[in-house]
Amino acid sequence: MTITPGSIDPIFERLSSVDSRLWSGIFFGILGLYTLAVVLEARTYSSDARLFPLIVGVPFLGLVVLKLVLMAASGRLSLGSFEVIDLADGMGETAAVDVTPAVRYRREFAMILWIVVLSALLWAFGFLFALLVFLFSFVLLYERKPIRAALVGVGTFSFVYVFFIRLLGANIYEGAYPIAVLGALL
């Protein structure tokens, strides 16, 4: 069975049809639970060490609960619908792009997957090899232009090598399985 973007769209369509307050609730709930753990842990510390965590943690928990209650009440009180993306922050400036929420979620999920795969590549083979493989395959997959993909990979590799390694003398992570080891194994 081949997974194509179109074949998994129904999953994201279903996800996008779920009341967004549920996702918000899960996110704020996790924040609240972690803070609860912090508050409980803080009680085991000395008075000086626990003072600030408790001063911040307890009201923070109250704020999270208040946020959850307001979200839950907004539906029943008809205070207005919740947008999945809240632009009020000013930080979430979003372009007026004509894509359905399901497509947007699928693309965002794919990008998160790319980053996770990149992290694994980085850990295993280090920055320089992972950089080339990641950039080439990413640009090739999305733009279908092998020469452009190679140019982006080699150009970025050259910049990183010259700027970080030669000029600044920075040590770049070589990976848990450096390429030399991989080559010997093969």
Partner: peptide, 21 residues
């Protein structure tokens, strides 16, 4: 973005590594 995004991601991750190694 399909060109810009991977470059920013990889350079960002290198930046986060070189500070403390």
């Amino acid at each position: 973005v399909t060109t810009l995004v991977p470059i920013v991601v990889i350079v960002g991750l290198i930046g986060s590594f070189v500070i403390r190694g």
